[in-house]
């Protein structure tokens, strides 16, 4: 594997019962890039995410991350290895405060255990304080520091999406999977989001893979993309070539015609 590759998906295939949800998905993702996965509803994009983040075990194929085979690893180990993700239908810890949500993300990098906690060890106190400070710092990055003590459930929709990103960043990933980050955002918010994605890439030294419906976002930020339709990869390449690809146009126009009807 090339030295500047961070993640490679080798012929990922998954079957549910008799149904093949994703067939032979291949991708090589370079370090530091922002890439996209697009396709109509039900094309298998989130399923691909789930295979890369350990939630599903692929029926066939392998996921190689940083030169290491992580196929079939449970999600918490995948996260520890350096892959973080967000969810399409936002999944926050609703009863916790905004700050607590981010602190949970920090936990995977914490060293002290519960016994240190019980016995009030100074090292533990220092670490806990550092975690709170780091979480607050991350909230500043996503612009939510003034909501730190609010219940996360009470945040507006867009803010919840940003909180999910902050929480993912707290796990100190090298590779970030964003599942429809622009869903439900207005055009202005979408523009801000694009800048934001570029900003965190540089600031946190990330590689980002995103699933998106909003063509403007994908075409705007992604350097490379894959197009899925009914589990098959129908196109791959930089935005300009995707835009002109007849199969992509067909898959998308076909869907839009249905949606408009």
């Amino acid at each position: 594997m090339d030295r500047d590759m961070i993640l490679e998906a080798r012929d990922l295939t998954i079957k549910f019962g008799g149904l093949t949800a994703v067939h032979s998905f291949k991708a090589r993702i370079g370090k530091g890039s922002i890439v996209g996965l697009i396709g109509p509803n039900g094309a298998g994009k989130t399923t691909c995410f789930n295979m890369m983040s350990g939630f599903y075990r692929p029926t066939e194929g392998r996921v190689i991350f940083n030169g290491r085979d992580i196929t079939g690893m449970p999600p918490h180990l995948v996260c520890r290895a350096g892959i973080a993700r967000t969810f399409q239908n936002i999944r926050l810890f609703g009863n916790g405060t905004v700050l607590q949500n981010v602190m949970v993300g920090c936990h995977v990098r914490q060293k002290s255990n519960w016994l240190h906690n019980l016995f009030y060890l100074p090292s533990n106190l220092r670490e806990e304080r550092a975690v709170a400070a780091k979480s607050l710092e991350l909230l500043k990055v996503v612009g939510l520091e003034s909501f730190a003590d609010e219940k996360s459930r009470s945040l507006p929709y867009g803010a919840q999406r940003r909180l999910e990103i902050a929480r993912a960043l707290a796990t100190e990933p090298n590779f970030l999977l964003l599942d429809e980050p622009a869903a439900g955002m207005n055009p202005q918010e979408t523009n801000e989001l694009m800048d934001f994605i570029r900003k965190i890439r540089t600031e946190f030294n990330l590689t980002i893979l995103l699933i998106e419906h909003d063509m403007k976002v994908v075409m705007g930020v992604c350097e490379h993309m894959w197009v899925l339709d009914y589990g098959e990869t129908i196109a791959e390449g930089p935005p300009e070539s995707i835009r002109k690809n007849p199969r992509v146009i067909e898959a998308y126009l076909g869907e839009e015609c249905v949606a408009d009807a």
Binding site: P75, H76, C79, R85, F93, G96, H107
Partner: peptide, 27 residues
């Protein structure tokens, strides 16, 4: 002590959403 530490937050996370907690690297 447990509840007010970050471990307490982890417990809360498991209660509120197991899948999301897994994605946060929590066993």
């Amino acid at each position: 002590r447990i509840i007010n530490s970050n471990l307490g937050n982890v417990f809360m996370a498991i209660r509120d959403d197991e899948a999301a907690a897994k994605a946060m690297g929590i066993n």
